[in-house]
C-alpha cells in the first residue's frame, strides 16, 4: 500500500511537470498545427537561467529567504523563455507558414540544436545541482512521503492551470486564440490579429515551460543542457495522449503519463519476473504514445476525427 501511494504521489508530481510542458505543445499545435520541436529546449533554458540566478543569490545574499530567491529565479527565467519563444516563432515558424510542412520542422530542429549547444557553451557539460535554498520539509502520510517541493509543485500547477483556463475562456486574447484555432482565415476576417495571437501563444507556452523547467530541476535537484530533449518528447507524448490541441487533454495526458511512468517503473520488475528493470522507465512514454495513436489517434479528449474526403 505504501509503495502504491508513494508511486501515486511521485507520478502526480512528475505528471504536473509534463502537463505544464505539454500545454505549450498543445497550444501551439492547436493554433498552427505544427509541432514546436524547440519547446523542450525552452524548458531547459528556463531551468538553467533560474538556477544561475538562484545560485548567485544564494551565494551573494545568504540571508534571503529561499522562496524569495526562487521567485527571483523565476522572475528572470520567465522573460528569457518568453523572449526565446517569440524568437522561435519569428525565426522558425512565421516565415515558413506557407512552406511545405517539413520546412518549419527542420528550422525548429535547427533552433533546438542551437539552443542546446548554446546552453552547453554557457553552462558547460556537467550537471548543475539545485542550490539548497528550498525548504526541506518531508511529511509522512499512510506510509508514503511527500516533500515541501512536491507539495509546492502540485499546488502551483493547479493554480497555473486554473489561471490558464480562465484566461482562455474569459479574456479577449483567449477568445481570439480559440477563434484562430478554429480557422485562421475566419479569425482574421473577424478582425483578429492572427500574428499577435500566434506570438502570444508561443509566449504563454514558453512562460509555462520556464516554470516547468524550474520545477523539474527542483524536483530532481539537477539541471543539465541536455535535459530538454527527453522532457520535451515526453511532454509531447502527454499532449498527444490527451488529444493534441486540447488544453484539458494536455493536463490529463501529463498527469496520466506521470502516473504510468511512476507505476510502470515501480512495478515493471514484478510484471516481467525481473527480466526488465526500472531503467526501462523512459520506454513507457513511447509505448503509451504509440498505443494511443494506433487505437485512438485523436487522443483521450480530442474530437473524434471525422472522415474527410
Amino acid at each position: 500500500m505504501d509503495i502504491f501511494l508513494q508511486q501515486l504521489i511521485n507520478g502526480l508530481v512528475l505528471g504536473s511537470v509534463y502537463a505544464l510542458v505539454a500545454l505549450g505543445y498543445t497550444m501551439v499545435y492547436g493554433i498552427i498545427e505544427l509541432i514546436n520541436f524547440a519547446h523542450g529546449e525552452v524548458t531547459m533554458m528556463g531551468a538553467l537561467v533560474a538556477l544561475s540566478v538562484i545560485g548567485a543569490l544564494a551565494l551573494g545574499m545568504p540571508g534571503l529567504p529561499g522562496v524569495l530567491i526562487l521567485a527571483a529565479g523565476l522572475a528572470l527565467a520567465i522573460p528569457v523563455c518568453v523572449a526565446l519563444g517569440l524568437l522561435i516563432e519569428r525565426v522558425a515558424y512565421r516565415p515558413l507558414r506557407n512552406a511545405p510542412r517539413l520546412a518549419p520542422l527542420i528550422t525548429a530542429i535547427g533552433v533546438s540544436i542551437v539552443l542546446q549547444n548554446l546552453a552547453m557553451l554557457i553552462w558547460g557539460k556537467q550537471y548543475i545541482s539545485f542550490p539548497p535554498v528550498l525548504p526541506q520539509g518531508r511529511y509522512e502520510i499512510l506510509g508514503a512521503h511527500i516533500t515541501d517541493v512536491q507539495i509546492a509543485i502540485l499546488v502551483l500547477t493547479v493554480l497555473i492551470m486554473l489561471g490558464l483556463i480562465l484566461m482562455v475562456q474569459r479574456t479577449r486574447l483567449g477568445r481570439a486564440m480559440r477563434a484562430t484555432a478554429q480557422s485562421r482565415q475566419v479569425a482574421s476576417l473577424m478582425g483578429v490579429d492572427v500574428n499577435r495571437v500566434i506570438a502570444s501563444t508561443f509566449a504563454i507556452g514558453s512562460a509555462l515551460a520556464a516554470v516547468a523547467g524550474v520545477m523539474v530541476s527542483a524536483y530532481y535537484g539537477l539541471a543539465h543542457y541536455y535535459m530538454g530533449f527527453m522532457l520535451g518528447l515526453k511532454a509531447f507524448s502527454a499532449a498527444v495522449l490527451g488529444g493534441i490541441g486540447n488544453l484539458g487533454g494536455a493536463m490529463l495526458g501529463g498527469l496520466l503519463l506521470g502516473l504510468i511512468e511512476s507505476f510502470g517503473a515501480g512495478y515493471i520488475g514484478d510484471l516481467t519476473g525481473g527480466f526488465l528493470g526500472s531503467h526501462y522507465q523512459d520506454v513507457f512514454a513511447f509505448f503509451v504514445l504509440i498505443a494511443v495513436l494506433v487505437f485512438r489517434p485523436s487522443g483521450l479528449l480530442g474530437a473524434r476525427g471525422i472522415e474527410r474526403a
Binding site: I106, G110, I113
Partner: peptide, 15 residues
C-alpha cells in the same frame, strides 16, 4: 562550436 554553427546553418538554409 561546430554543432551550434550547424544548427544555425540548418535554420538559414531552410529560410
Amino acid at each position: 562550436l561546430r554543432m551550434l554553427l550547424f544548427g544555425l546553418a540548418l535554420v538559414a538554409v531552410m529560410l
